[in-house]
């Protein structure tokens, strides 16, 4: 509104189509949530397929899910939750204008993201060794191999797209960390840090649903 009161430095962050920083931040946040809504439906389509096939072949899914590593999946859930915490702390540091802390927390977040991917890679490797990769070397020992293959297709497609999102997330955070180091953000202007955080937390949320649905179907016997 009253641009005269803004310092010169602050004004330079406001793009000319916005009245002030607050309006600009609001627009950025809304834009990100509009994108995330399309992401919800992107993953939603896969969850829909999962729901239909699990409803149709409950016993087959229960048996096939025995091949998942509950411990590695659980550890990975914890790893992503920690990364979400450090991401939130990075945004918190941005609100306080603490440049060093932003970069530190962003790096920790990326490291935990990378740890997740490594553990996921170990799990994928196990599946390759156990001949459980559809279209590559699928040889299922249990009952109903054809229907079981659907479970493994869903497993690889859903966790694969999730991992792809995580890789993109790490790239985004790298860019944000570099921008932070170059002094592109201030206490007043840190919207890119905030909306990158929204993306990161979204990846966490997808995994929060993937873990119980893929790993914990039938661990009680």
């Amino acid at each position: 509104m009253d641009n005269e009161q803004l310092t010169h430095e602050t004004r330079s962050f406001v793009a000319h189509q916005f009245d002030d920083l607050e309006q600009q931040k609001e627009a950025g946040t809304l834009g990100m949530w509009a994108f995330l809504a399309t992401e919800i439906l992107f993953f939603g389509g896969m969850f829909m397929a999962y729901l239909v096939y699990r409803f149709s072949y409950p016993q087959v899914f229960a048996a096939a899910s025995q091949y998942m590593d509950v411990v590695l999946g659980g550890v990975n859930t914890g790893v992503l939750l920690v990364s979400s915490l450090t991401m939130a702390l990075a945004v918190h540091a941005a609100q306080e204008g603490n440049r060093k802390q932003i970069i530190t927390f962003l790096i920790i977040t990326m490291i935990f993201g990378a740890i997740f991917l490594v553990i996921k890679g170990v799990e994928y490797h196990h599946k390759f060794v156990e001949h459980l990769v559809p279209g590559y070397n699928f040889q299922y020992e249990g009952a109903e191999p054809g229907k079981s293959e659907i479970y493994f297709i869903l497993y690889f497609v859903m966790t694969g797209f999730h991992a792809l999102h995580l890789i993109i997330g790490i790239v985004v955070l790298t860019v944000i960390a570099i921008m932070t180091a170059r002094g592109r953000f201030t206490k007043e202007y840190y919207t890119p840090v905030e909306i990158s955080g929204l993306y990161w937390h979204f990846i966490d949320i997808v995994w929060i649903f993937l873990y119980p649905l893929l790993y914990l179907i039938h661990v009680h016997k």
Binding site: S84, M87, A88, G197, I205, I208
Partner: peptide, 11 residues
């Protein structure tokens, strides 16, 4: 869990 993340971590 998702609700907690959305309400607090995502502000």
């Amino acid at each position: 869990k998702a609700t907690l993340v959305i309400l607090y971590f995502m502000h």
